[in-house]
């Protein structure tokens, strides 16, 4: 073994890395909600749209779920400037995350829509619910409940996925480790600390989501 660990030197960087962790959360949060918006329209289009709409959405979903996010990011990052469109690395990566997770979330959300059974709605109708009341009391609560766990999982997965932004120079958690590892040569220590931070962040996020899930949607979920 010819490597001497110097944890002290690495731990000095913790505050700097925590700043990066904050950007990671930020990025995943915005990415999630952009993706969710795309996913919502995608799912609506797929469930209620005409044949052409459905086909287009299917192509979009199939394309993004069968190609690596990193390569679509390269494609956008280096491709758009060829058309004279210049985006900052941050916005490029955000666009990529939104498009990519939009495809996955289209599928997730459609699963939720499909799970509202006709019988339930018929039951509501026979009880004299108006369409608005059906939405308010039956459809939306049902969908929220069904979607809460898979969407939460997806968010956690996205936190890990945003590490990719580092490759494009975004200074989130992994990006900041890139910076410091190059300067200090304490790579093993720094990457270990970053790994630990990702574990901590995702456990924290899961825990918060568990509480929200139980409290707001009465969904029974576990952190582990």
């Amino acid at each position: 073994m010819n490597y001497t660990f110097q944890w002290g030197e690495a731990f000095i960087e913790v505050p700097y890395l925590l700043g990066g962790a904050w950007i990671t959360l930020h990025l995943s949060f915005i990415g999630f909600w952009s993706g969710a918006t795309i996913g919502l329209f995608g799912a609506l289009g797929k469930t209620y749209g005409g044949p052409v709409t459905v086909k287009l959405i299917n192509w979009y979903v199939i394309f993004f779920t069968n190609t690596p996010g990193l390569v679509t990011a390269f494609f956008i990052f280096f491709g758009l400037p060829e058309f004279g469109i210049l985006l900052s690395p941050y916005h490029t990566i955000l666009l990529n995350i939104a498009l990519n997770s939009g495809a996955y979330m289209t599928e997730i959300m459609r699963g939720g829509f499909v799970s509202v059974h006709k019988t339930e709605l018929e039951a509501a109708e026979t009880m004299g619910f108006t369409l608005l009341q059906q939405l308010r009391y039956v459809i939306v609560p049902h969908i929220a409940k069904v979607l809460f766990a898979p969407l939460s999982n997806w968010y956690i997965w996205m936190i890990l996925g945003t590490a990719m932004a580092a490759i494009f120079g975004v200074e989130e958690l992994t990006g900041r480790v890139f910076n410091r590892a190059a300067e200090t040569f304490r790579s093993i220590e720094l990457y270990t600390i970053a790994a630990g931070m990702y574990v901590a962040i995702t456990i924290l996020a899961s825990s918060i989501l568990v509480v929200i899930g139980r409290w707001a949607f009465r969904v029974k979920v576990k952190v582990f």
Binding site: Y3, A163, M164, S187, V199
Partner: peptide, 24 residues
């Protein structure tokens, strides 16, 4: 299991690479 499902693949890649190199 609980740890390595919560670490980005990219971070793990670099961790493994630097560990392998660090240990010669």
């Amino acid at each position: 299991v609980e740890t390595f499902r919560r670490v980005p693949f990219l971070v793990l890649l670099f961790l493994v690479m630097f560990t392998v190199k660090g240990f010669g």
